[in-house]
Write a protein that binds this DNA or RNA. Structure first.
Length: 585
DNA sequence: ACGCCGACTTAGCATTTAAGGC
DNA sequence: GCCTTAAATGCTAAGTCGGCGT
């Protein structure tokens, strides 16, 4: 209990979960439904610096004419574009059109009359100035860099923390997002639009009535100051691209976020105890007379087996065209009675979250295959595959099967259970630490592949692999040399007794050291190659119950620092403190 | 029943920092 | 100690999901 006392809220929740009454007095600490805090005080968000006008020697030219001076507003937006000129997307039609339209809105009447074609704009000097600035920053002296660092730290100290129920907590994102050109992911219809500068007049502050209310920048006022303790955010504003709300919230290491994280994994563990029943149910539902129920069953089969996301509907033309399970269209799957030696294969090809491609060929059971054929009958490629199903219908059904169950719980559950099972399968107590870590990464990778967490191969990937190979070759050479020397030393020792009795021992040690280093590098090369297009971070941070990893570290005698960096250890502090070696997900 | 919106989690890429080799 | 490169951190877009109003 002492160890856990700093996490008494967790302890308390466990006690509630297990309906134990011994520490009932702690339950008083639990706030009534929906209340997230009793006291909240902070300094408000940090605003980005104001726009600095161009120096006189940097010009903008239109249509080959003599330089023209832009109004401040038009100049700022022009510079956003000029800064991006190295990026491929400034060549894209949609990006350019959106930018030009929004830029013209910022121009004065005269400017608008003159500047009618983006192709005739010459941002060359502005772009060069920006490149020079970046270069200058890179070449700053040590002292300058140090001074900059200290200035930044001061801002963090002042704005980066809040007081929540008398605990000082780190804020996750205390800075207002600076203005710029919007770049969505994938083929976003709004790419290139102007993301406007946020003023204090746009910002809602949330804090305790009795706290020190944040003071807006001089000469400005807040949009509103409210005192809503049923939400966790400290400040919010509405962005102008999608009209959605942005929030200032706590860091992941805060008690509020940690508790929520813990709850998420507890719900997933609860699914573990009833997943068999749920699976039997949806297999039965595949034969239902009701088409809606059958569609729900097939969707659930995909969500469970393939870890697909729920797939809410999206407003057409507002965002990139991406889908999840419920929003799959006929064009996204191809049915194969027979493919590569398997029967009833479904070929998936669609863009998911962040326009990441999901491509997979999956053998499915006959009933699912038959149903899919049925759902696709008399439909166009652009029609919904599941026309009788929505995420809200699906989630309503799920929550009736188990309290708190939604589609995304399957992702959490399947990810965590896969990690646990893979770790069991891949690691041996007798392996070296390097081998254990390779196994851990492989288990992690199995999850990342399941969840389709991809990344663009790092730009320097080929080069860095080649570099590593050179080092491996050099080490091999060194090893064979060391071995020869060892042989030589042994021979000499045998022949005439040794002048240096420890020589053989030393040479032996050198060989061993060399072998270890070689192994380590080879393992690293394998790991890196297998990881080329796979991102491990997302699953580690969001899907894998940290207690599985903590318990594994304890069992395998691997220091926790080897698998979690500082940020991750902070976020998972609750798990690191409370988990014993015998934890089972 | 349904669409919309608010709140919150999940996501990949860009930038910064630090580790490790020379 | 310096410099390169990999890892860590920062940033903000893009999802999920519940609740509310019509």
């Amino acid at each position: 209990i002492n160890i856990l006392s700093q996490y008494f809220l967790f302890v308390k929740d466990i006690l509630i979960f297990s309906s134990c009454c011994f520490f009932v007095r702690w339950e008083e600490e639990k706030y009534e439904d929906g209340v997230k805090w009793k006291f909240l005080e902070h300094k408000g968000p940090y605003f980005p610096p104001e726009y600095q006008p161009l120096p006189d020697n940097v010009h903008f030219y239109y249509d080959g004419q003599l330089s023209m001076e832009l109004s401040l507003a038009a100049e700022e937006v022009a510079l956003f574009f000029a800064q991006m000129l190295d990026h491929e997307y400034t060549t894209k039609k949609v990006f350019r059109e959106n930018f030009f339209k929004d830029w013209r809105k910022e121009m004065t009447q005269e400017e608008r009359l003159l500047i009618k074609d983006l192709d005739k704009c010459d941002f060359g000097e502005m772009h060069a100035m920006h490149t020079a600035k970046v270069e200058a920053r890179r070449n700053m002296s040590k002292e300058e860099k140090q001074a900059l660092k200290e200035a930044n730290q001061k801002i963090v100290d002042e704005y980066g923390y809040c007081l929540l129920d008398h605990h000082k907590e780190r804020i996750g994102n205390f800075k207002i997002e600076p203005p710029g050109l919007f770049r969505g992911r994938g083929e976003h219809p709004k790419q290139g639009m102007l993301k406007k500068r946020i003023q204090p007049e746009d910002v809602i502050i949330n804090c305790s009535k009795e706290s020190k209310i944040p003071v807006p920048p001089a000469g400005y006022h807040w949009k509103e100051v409210r005192h809503d303790n049923t939400v966790t955010w400290l400040a919010s504003w509405t962005e102008n691209i999608q009209g959605s709300i942005k929030y200032i919230m706590l860091n992941a290491n805060s008690k509020l976020k940690g508790e929520k994280d813990w709850e998420k994994y507890e719900v997933a563990r609860k699914l573990k105890s009833c997943v068999d029943g749920i699976r039997n149910q949806y297999l039965l539902d595949l034969k239902s007379k009701e088409m809606g129920v059958r569609q729900r069953a097939v969707a659930l089969y995909f969500i469970d087996k393939l870890a697909l996301r729920a797939g809410n509907e999206k407003e057409e033309g507002e965002t990139a065209d991406t889908v999840g399970c419920c929003s799959l269209r006929v064009e996204h799957i191809t049915l194969h009675e027979q493919l590569e030696g398997s029967e009833c294969v479904v070929e998936f090809d669609f863009l998911g979250k962040d326009s990441i491609r999901y491509y997979n060929k999956v053998p499915v059971i006959k009933k699912v295959f038959k149903n899919l054929k049925l759902f696709m009958e008399n439909k166009q490629p652009g029609d919904d595959l599941f026309d009788r199903l929505s995420t809200s219908l699906l989630n309503k059904h799920l929550s009736s099967l188990m309290p708190g169950l939604t589609a995304k719980v399957f992702r959490t559950y399947n990810a965590s259970i896969t990690l646990q099972q893979q770790l069991k399968e891949l690691t041996n107590q007798s392996d070296s630490v390097a081998e254990k870590l390779l196994s851990y990464n492989r288990a992690n990778r199995a999850v990342a592949i399941l969840c389709n967490h991809q990344r663009a191969p790092p730009k320097t990937f080929e080069q860095s692999m080649a570099n590593l190979q050179v080092k491996i070759d050099a080490r091999k050479e060194q090893l064979s040399l060391a071995k020869t020397e060892l042989k030589q030393a042994k021979k000499e020792a045998k022949a005439k007794g040794s002048s240096d009795p420890k020589l053989v021992e030393r040479k032996k040690a050198a060989v061993k050291r060399c072998e270890e280093q070689l192994l380590k590098m080879e393992v690293q090369a394998t790991d890196r190659e297998e990881n080329k297009q796979i991102a491990l971070g997302t699953s580690k941070l969001n899907y894998l119950d940290p207690r599985i990893s903590v318990a594994w570290c304890k069992n395998m005698e691997v220091p926790i620092e080897k698998i979690y960096n500082k940020t991750q250890r902070d976020k998972f502090a609750w798990a690191i403190d409370m988990t014993e070696a015998d934890f089972e997900f």
